[in-house]
């Protein structure tokens, strides 16, 4: 899939922007994580697009598999923190995380 590099990256930029916008404007922690997921999807597509351009698809796939593992762990820990916070404070608003208690 060579010859589409610039166009691919145009869409990748837009997907990254959508995820960044979601993280910027949302106050819900779940939406923050959804924005993070969308941004990581755009990074994944960027890695495979670059790998296809430079004839390095195997290395790109190895990096993507590593990235997916990291993504799954981050989301699992983030969602468990969210559920714990909801049980403690009754809110998933990100501004409810502004107090410290030992």
């Amino acid at each position: 899939m060579t010859g589409y590099f610039a166009l691919d990256w145009y869409f990748i930029t837009l997907i990254f922007f959508a995820g960044m916008y979601c993280m910027l404007v949302s106050r819900s922690l779940i939406r923050q994580l959804i924005g993070l997921e969308i941004m990581s999807k755009s990074c994944l597509l960027g890695i495979i697009s670059t790998g296809a351009l430079t004839n390095n698809l195997a290395l790109s796939q190895a990096l993507i598999i590593m990235m997916i593992v990291i993504e799954a762990v981050v989301v699992a820990v983030g969602l468990s923190l969210l559920v714990k916070n909801y049980r403690l404070t009754g809110s998933i608003d990100i501004w409810s995380l502004d107090n410290l208690k030992g």
Partner: peptide
């Protein structure tokens, strides 16, 4: 992109496992 291994991982982990985690939360 002819990257089947990454595609299968993406489909099973991201579209499956992470979605299930999100729906549970």
């Amino acid at each position: 992109f002819q990257a089947p291994w990454a595609a299968v991982f993406e489909l099973s982990v991201c579209a499956g496992l992470i979605t299930a985690l999100f729906i549970g939360a």
